[in-house]
Amino acid sequence: MRAKSIFLAALILAGCAGAPKPAGPPRLHAALEAENDGAKRYARGDFGMAERRFDEAMRLYASIDDAPGRTRNRLHLARTRLAQGRDEAALDLLNAAPPDAEPGPALDTLLLKAQAQLALGRDADAQQILAAATGRCGAACPQAASLNLLQARAALAGKRPQDALAHAEAALKLLRDTGEAVETGNAWRMIAAARFAAGDAAGALPAAETALDIDRRLALPEKIAGDWLLIGDIRRKVGAGDTAAAYQRALEVANAAHLSGIAGIATQALAGLGTAGSTSR
């Protein structure tokens, strides 16, 4: 009872201490809240609800003629769809957007388009978009690391592992001391994949393990499962004995996170090794 009274008194005193904050226009406030809620859900991996909230925010911003807010949420929405694997839907959304005058969002739009084209396997289209993005991004533009990583993915898809490795290493250099852990993990995964494709399996393994460490710290199931698949492939190439264990870990993570695509790949890989995987789905 006493603690309750003290808490109440402290609450009232603290409230009195600060000057009342001016409330913004209600519609703008609602748009910002929807956007923030969407971002929180995106970070939690709740992409379905994040998409709805970003869509709501985009419409609210459009209703108050706030072009930057609408563009920002269109990009959030496209990223959410890409994370869901709905690449065509993301591309449609980005293509439907009017050309942006601001250089930052315009470059972000190009990078997301390239990402979607790469995911759809349209490497030539992706290359064209990346060339346009390179023209817009100077040496120190904030998106330079992401651009390099996408160029590395495009080079790897085009069977140019040495180019991929050069871009991935350039990205890693740009990411140093930036605190961008997600992109750093992507860079290490890309380095591992490029080295593996270039025939340097021994050099690829530590890079893949570094990527796995980062993705585990960030608790990103899809990437963790992907890292284990890559580690399994590399171990099989170098003739390490624990290849099946790596695929099994990929399968377990994929099953637990309901990632049917990766689970199927891991099961096939285990079958290729002659080890029966336990598909619990």
Partner: peptide, 20 residues
């Protein structure tokens, strides 16, 4: 008061690199 949200950049959200 809520501020505009910024999502962390992620060029490979599904960890597909090297999964060819």
């Amino acid at each position: 008061a809520p501020a505009p949200a910024m999502l962390k950049p992620d060029s490979d959200p599904r960890g597909e690199a090297g999964r060819a």
